[in-house]
Amino acid sequence: MIFSTWPALLVVDVEGNGTNPPDLVEVAALPVRDGRPDKTTARAWLTRPERPVTSFATRVHGLSNDDLADQPAWSDIADQVHTFMGAAWICAHNAHTDYRVLSAHLPGWAPAGVLDTLRLAKATFPDLGKYSLDALIEYVKPDLGEAPAQRHRATFDAFATAQLLIAMASRYETWDQLVAAAVPPGLPGAPEPEKDPTLW
């Protein structure tokens, strides 16, 4: 894989307040350049949700209502997030979720494509059995020494996902092969299905 051929790509992760549909409490966006995560240009935002964070959500990501009380409302940072994301490709683990939540919070946002490390892992390691982020971290053993915060925070999970993406991408020869393995049908960037050949 020649990583310099990749288009602009952000590995993203979101954390919510535990409601359905969720309000965002944290968004991380980590560029991948030349086959490595670029922490120098990464961005992360904490935001005060409209509805209180549930106790279950706090147990997962560790962010409480007190932690977020002085953070800006989503309406105050949405333009910043939208501008930073631009039209770049995004990657996330179980990307349907992050793409759906971000799309609901960023009207008009249209990424060039969406890579899913969950889908990619199933194609790359078909006999693994478990494909959670924790299972992949245990199996691939990426270097997480520079990961910020801790597991289940958006910044940590984006960094871990980036390292997993890079490790798995090295098993593919081209960007197009990676896209074919990693973009779920129906999401931006998905290859067009081949048409059945006919005699006419």
Rank of each mutant, 00 (worst) to 15 (best):
I2L: 13
T5L: 11
A8G: 15
A8H: 08
L9F: 07
L9G: 07
N17P: 15
N20P: 07
P21A: 12
P22M: 15
V25K: 04
V27S: 06
P31R: 10
R33F: 00
D34C: 12
G35P: 03
W45F: 12
P49V: 09
P49Y: 00
R51W: 00
S55A: 15
R59Q: 08
H61Y: 00
N65G: 13
D66C: 06
A69P: 07
Q71N: 12
P72A: 09
S75H: 06
D79W: 00
D79M: 07
M85A: 09
M85F: 02
A88G: 07
H93E: 01
N94P: 04
A95H: 04
T97F: 05
R100P: 03
S103K: 13
H105S: 14
V114L: 03
L115V: 04
R119H: 11
K122Q: 11
A123P: 12
P126D: 05
K130C: 07
L133S: 01
A135D: 07
P142I: 04
D143K: 12
L144T: 10
E146R: 15
E146F: 07
A149C: 14
R153Y: 06
F156T: 10
I166E: 06
A169I: 02
S170N: 11
L178V: 09
A181Q: 06
A181C: 14
V183R: 01
G186I: 08
G189S: 10
E192C: 02
E192G: 07
E194I: 05
E194R: 11
